[in-house]
């Protein structure tokens, strides 16, 4: 991080009265007030189409809220964008077809105006299980492999804020479990603030410190569940009673969220 950077190493995120109505009057987010602690991983779970990805895009500064404000490390999203201290792993891997696996990962360094770092790129390729595919173009990769490239790309710039939009959606179960164990080892020591959108309750519990359950559209936060499991999460934690209890609590929260229209703030 540069000495004159405005965004702290582990920026907190503050949403004040943030709402989003798309042209045509589709209300996606009801006015939302929430603070995400810096250095924590927060998971957003909720039914399909409820507005989780929209909230992520608002935090990333890719969309402007209809009302309210978002502050990242005390500054609007444009500041963290300007400092290239943000990385997003999109739902669609968004790989450039004319670049190889290595080229796609290196593109993030270029866009962030950081010097080339072949060793770090190779390490990440290995971490996401794509050794031997560094010079392969996306067309020759499976959906899961492409998604892993996108994850590696989001990590390579060592962002201060990492936004993951269903990053493991197309990844097979075994790789998904492996990635869920390995990836936090990268962002935890750096205390990267991470926001994760996922449909998988066990993935949310495995990766996050806090889980926000959103209602069907227009989204409201209907459950705010802390995950009190040790960090770093040891291998096999998913078979412990504490993990299973957390999964059950979030699942119950999701079920209540589907039925509920009353936001947490009003309870």
């Amino acid at each position: 991080m540069g000495a004159d950077a405005e965004i702290p190493t582990s920026p907190g995120i503050v949403c004040r009265g943030v709402s989003k109505v798309f042209p045509g009057g589709v209300e996606v987010l009801r006015p939302l007030d929430v603070t995400l602690e810096g250095g924590q991983t927060t998971a957003l779970v909720g039914p399909s189409g409820c507005g989780k990805s929209t909230l992520l895009r608002l935090i990333a500064g890719l969309e402007a809220p209809t009302a309210g404000e978002i502050l990242i490390g005390g500054a609007p999203p444009s500041v963290i964008l300007r400092e290239a201290a943000l990385a997003v792993a999109f739902q669609d891997p968004s790989l450039l077809p004319w670049r190889t696996v290595r080229g796609n990962i290196e593109l993030a360094l270029k866009l962030a105006r950081k010097p080339p770092d072949p060793r770090k790129v190779d390490d990440l390729i290995r971490l996401v299980g794509l050794e031997g595919f560094a010079d392969t173009r996306p067309a020759a990769l499976s959906g899961g492999m492409r998604q892993r490239v996108a994850i590696a790309r989001s990590m390579v710039t060592e962002p201060r804020l990492l936004l993951l939009d269903e990053p493991f959606g197309a990844v097979d179960e075994l790789t998904r479990r492996q990635l869920a164990e390995d990836l936090p080892r990268i962002w935890e020591p750096r205390r990267t603030t991470t926001v994760l959108v996922t449909h998988s309750v066990s993935e949310a519990v495995m990766l996050s410190d806090r889980i926000l359950v959103l209602s069907p559209r227009p989204a409201k936060i209907v459950e705010d569940i802390p995950v009190d499991l040790p960090r770093p999460r040891p291998a096999g934690i998913d078979s412990t009673p504490a993990f299973r209890a957390a999964v059950q609590e979030v699942s119950a929260g999701l079920a209540r969220g589907m039925a509920s229209t009353t936001p947490l703030a009003a309870q």
């Binding site: 895009r57 990333a60 500064g61 890719l62 444009s78 963290i80 964008l81 300007r82 400092e83 290239a84 943000l86 990385a87 997003v88 999109f90 669609d92 968004s94 450039l96 593109l107 993030a108 270029k110 866009l111 962030a112 710039t157």
Partner: peptide
Amino acid sequence: APSSWFDLVRSYGRGAMAELVHI
């Protein structure tokens, strides 16, 4: 180009010129 490619460029705080060059 799909809009997500432009989102990628914008998520690194880059503008129209980077979109033109890289995408």
